[in-house]
Design a protein around this nucleic acid. Sequence first.
DNA 1: TAAACTGTTCGCAAATATACGAATAGTTTG
DNA 2: CAAACTATTCGTATATTTGCGAACAGTTTA
Lengths: 101, 101
Amino acid sequence: MPTTIKTDYFTKDQELTAKFAKALGHPVRIAILELLNSQACCFHGDMAEELPIAKSTLSQHLNELKNVGLIQGDITPPSTKYCINRENFALAKRLIGNTLK
Amino acid sequence: MPTTIKTDYFTKDQELTAKFAKALGHPVRIAILELLNSQACCFHGDMAEELPIAKSTLSQHLNELKNVGLIQGDITPPSTKYCINRENFALAKRLIGNTLK
DNA sequence: TAAACTGTTCGCAAATATACGAATAGTTTG
DNA sequence: CAAACTATTCGTATATTTGCGAACAGTTTA
């Protein structure tokens, strides 16, 4: 068997593609994005009413989407407004679409 | 607070979109798909040489991709040939792309 | 300042995902 | 038939994800 160097195998793009895809890998998060997409922006509370999960769980999902940059949160207590990050939306679409080409 | 029915909240499309995305949510599986995409088909052994994981782990990843229908395996011992399932590739691209529109 | 309102964070439990090597299962070769 | 070859399955360990309710943190209102 030939020796194969396997250090740092993955490219940044591959890592990023997987990261975006992973963030999309849950129905709740798909639903969140569709909600945000259908309206300009959305408050946490509005989504909590629609989605079949506890508020704390919703916060976690929103946080995951925020961490990969697919959405952004405008925190002005007592309420928080969430919007889609169009730039990263497009990037994610391009990366994933490229993998599925 | 108005009563909201939350049973069976997610649509089939939302579930399927999440499923596809989840399958894409790991760099190894992204790399696998890119390998398969760059060549017509690929043997397990060819990929095992390229990827920084054990063969058994590779089998698991291939199995996940197969389970969601993104690839298909042609098992003719002692070797197994894997190909991309173009139909579901396109479906996944359409569903995820639609979410990110 | 107390109470109300909206979200987040914490602490925990259960379920999934990831990874490896050993053992196993089909073929083909000697 | 034994050995070699390729790949999967098994058993196991660890890490991550998902989910909830309780507790907490900023504002605004009474």
